[in-house]
């Protein structure tokens, strides 16, 4: 995925908005939005691709207090298609206004639970036929899951407390596999060397990448070397 890697850039609000614009572009969505709730810091972070008018209206109306796409989705562990949400008075209130701003109610929210009670919600919307929507969701769900964790982890570790709490801790197996990658071995080779299945190598690499806030294995190796978790190849 050639979406900008947040780990390499100085953290500023503009970077997150750019990231969401790229998510929107690559995955062919109308909009993408991220909301992060961090009880440890008592902070709520929000970044969206919606128009400034809708952002302002949303805040003025206090919709973040009642928006079911946030409040119901954060209690799910699976992505929540908005068609599953009850058409409650809160739902109707938010989406009646959203409609006036050209935003429909066909969307999906990916909930991410962090280790410290923090929750991230990556939402995407697209106005199209139901069939098209289901196909799009099926094709992009795996990517959306990874991107949701990527933006959430980056936002959560953007302050001092978060950086300490989110310091990556690799298991011996994860460090060992990453060390072999740094030495230029393929996943196939590593599986043979360690006598484990290739899929085991793959899930450990995936876990290492996410712990190191990297979207690619090469970035993960670079960062692990930088943090002194493995030796340079």
């Amino acid at each position: 995925m050639d979406i900008v890697d947040l780990g390499t850039l100085p953290k500023s609000e503009a970077v997150y908005s750019d990231f969401l614009l790229q998510v929107r572009e690559k995955l062919e969505m109308d909009h993408a939005a991220y909301a992060g709730l961090n009880p440890a810091a008592g902070a709520i972070h929000g970044y969206v691709t919606y128009s400034d008018e809708w952002k302002l209206h949303y805040q003025e109306q206090g919709f973040h207090m009642i928006d079911p796409t946030l409040h119901m989705s954060q209690r799910s562990i699976a992505p929540v298609d908005w068609s599953r949400l009850e058409r409650s008075s809160d739902f109707r209130r938010v989406f009646r206004d959203a409609h006036d701003f050209g935003i429909g109610d066909q969307g999906l929210t990916i909930p991410v639970r962090g280790p410290y009670g923090d929750v991230g919600l990556l939402s995407v919307t697209r106005e199209c036929s139901t069939d098209e929507w289901h196909k799009l969701v099926r094709h992009t769900l795996g990517d959306l899951q990874s991107l949701a964790v990527h933006i959430h982890d980056t936002v959560m570790s953007s302050d001092m407390l978060g950086r300490v709490l989110y310091h990556p801790s690799l298991s011996t197996r994860e460090a060992e596999i990453l060390q072999w990658v740094a030495a230029g071995k393929s996943q196939q080779d590593i599986g043979d060397i360690l006598s484990i299945s290739h899929r085991t190598v793959e899930v450990h690499l995936r876990s290492s990448r996410e712990k190191l806030c990297a979207l690619t294995t090469a970035q993960a190796v670079g960062r692990a070397v930088g943090l002194g978790l493995i030796y340079p190849g």
């Binding site: 562990i77 991410v112 795996g142 899951q145 990874s146 949701a148 964790v149 801790s169 690799l170 298991s171 011996t172 197996r173 994860e174 899930v203 450990h204 995936r206 876990s207 996410e210 712990k211």
Partner: peptide, 10 residues
Amino acid sequence: EPPLRSSTMW
């Protein structure tokens, strides 16, 4: 050891 952590693993 720290556990595996992945968005695509439950």
